[in-house]
Design a protein around this nucleic acid. Structure first.
Length: 444
RNA sequence: GUGGCUAUAGUUUAGUGGUAAAACUUCGGUUUGUGGAGCCGAUAUCGAGAGUUCGAUUCUCUCUAGCCACCCCA
């Protein structure tokens, strides 16, 4: 038994009062009944189809990872408070993976010398986070992860953003329903540290605050910025910084920049990504100086797909460039760009836009059997039909014919064949279409 | 982890300090070779545990879960 159970020994058997087990699933995780699973399969198939259309190969890994993998980049606090971490019987600290990128980086680093770059990989892992569940946030979710290794130029960004765009369209959104927000870590780093001279910690505080800009009152945001600038004894420069952040668009932002910064390579990269997407017919990408993304490991372009529908107004995809991550494993760095997309958001989106398809029927034909003695014939006929690729279900209920047909219809099975004495004797039967009511004669 | 709201048939909701009502669904029946309707019937230890009370589904506390916000953000 894992040691986190040590403090809660099993109830003694003398506790005779039998308590029924709860039918509820564990807090924050979901059961997938067949109707839910159909939705999940639909989402996964969108992810798979598009990933494979771009030549990405699927990979996978265990949900269990040594806790150290996340310590390296995320710090103790994340491990202790936001992950499922426990000690196994061999005293190893184990974590249920909260994200896939460290696992991926580990795998790529392990085989770096035998892999053929550029590497295009995708995966649909389930990820765990120990957090308070609420709408759109659960403790276990599935996430498409798409990563491209070995391409230094921003054509890598253009390719993966193009994929994110295709997937968003496949969810059923029109170009006007969403926008692709783009920023560059290099730009904000350069501005906060080089141009305004903030130290490391102040720069991070500023980033956090910018990340929240849309959520908090403007007054509070501006006061926060002033406070940080004041702490660095450059309060006088705060208005200039605020003007920059309040820029309406990219051109205004570029104009507001000090001359030295407007020539910065990060600015040029943003221009090239947006222009590159436009050449592909993607016109809803725009620069957003307030886009930060949570992960520390991003080093360049960061982006997210944002749903503009008032019902959601949230991030559908997020990703960016993380050129330094593989260096953690002692390798030289490998340029990398990737993004992730969650199943919960995908489902909410398709519900909002009404683009969830009807669940497919479980079979093409149902065989209704009149009398047990005729079952062997039905089973044999079913097998013959299956050999031809038809999905066939044989009704084994022994109920009345009317009930069997009703049952097939309720399952949306389009056709039925009735098997009774008559059919067994003659080898002839009728295929009935439940929608039109028409019957077609057939024989074995 | 913190705070607020919530918890009654499978579902959505009524309701009451004296063991609960409706709609829809599901299951069974409507007398045995053709479904979608109708009709009849069934299904709730009122989230779990404890307390107050003659008596609790109703009041109180604890726990659990859900929703919302904080936190965090894939």
């Amino acid at each position: 038994m894992f040691n986190f159970f040590k403090n809660s020994p099993a109830k003694p058997a003398t506790d005779t009062k039998e308590r029924k087990l709860s039918t509820e699933s564990y807090k924050g995780v979901r059961d997938f009944f067949p109707t839910d699973m159909a939705v999940e399969k639909h989402i996964f198939s969108i992810w798979r189809n598009i990933s494979e259309k771009y030549g990405y190969e699927e990979y996978g890994a265990s949900v269990l990872e040594p806790a150290d993998l996340y310590r390296a980049k995320s710090g103790e606090e994340l491990i202790n408070e936001q992950t499922y971490t426990f000690t196994d019987r061999g005293d190893r600290e184990v974590t249920l993976r909260p994200e896939m990128t460290p696992t991926l980086a580990r795998m790529v680093a392990a085989k770096k010398r035998e892999l053929i770059f550029p590497l295009r990989w995708y995966s649909i892992p389930n990820l765990f986070r120990y957090e308070q569940p609420q709408r759109g946030r659960v403790r276990e979710h599935w996430q498409l992860n798409v990563d491209l290794f070995g391409v230094e130029s921003i054509t890598a960004e253009i390719e993966v953003i193009n994929m994110a765009y295709d997937i968003t369209r496949a969810y059923g959104l029109k170009d006007t329903d969403f926008e692709i927000r783009i920023n560059n870590r290099k730009v904000m780093n350069y501005i906060t540290k080089e141009v305004f001279g903030l130290d490391e910690e102040s720069a991070r505080k500023v980033s956090k605050l910018i990340d929240k800009k849309e959520k908090i009152p403007r007054e509070k945001f501006e006061a926060g910025i002033r406070e940080i600038f004041d702490g660095q004894k450059i309060a006088a420069k705060a208005p200039q910084f605020l003007t920059l952040l309040n820029s309406k668009n990219f051109e205004e932002f570029a104009t507001n920049l000090p001359a030295s910064a407007s020539e910065h390579e990060g600015i040029a990269e943003i221009r090239r990504v947006i222009a590159g997407l436009e050449k592909l017919g993607i016109t809803n990408a725009r620069f957003d100086q307030t886009l930060m993304r949570g992960f520390d490991y991003y080093t360049g372009i960061v982006f997210e797909v944002f749903d503009l529908n008032p019902a959601n107004r949230r991030s559908v995809f997020g990703g960016g460039r993380y050129d330094e991550l593989l260096a953690l494993f002692g390798n030289e760095k490998v340029p990398a760009v990737g993004f992730g997309a969650g199943d919960v958001v995908a489902q909410d989106l398709m519900e909002t836009y009404g683009t969830l398809p009807q669940a497919p029927a479980s079979a093409d034909i149902a065989l209704c059997v009149m009398g047990e003695t005729n079952t062997p014939f039905a089973l044999d006929l079913a097998q013959k039909l299956r050999d031809k690729g038809t999905r066939v279900v044989v009704d084994l209920s022994g109920k009345k014919l009317g009930d069997q047909i009703k049952n097939a219809d309720r399952r949306h099975i389009p056709k039925v064949i009735v098997i009774g004495e008559e059919e067994v004797k003659t080898g002839k039967f009728k295929v009935k279409d439940l929608k039109s009511g028409e019957e077609v004669d057939m024989s074995v």
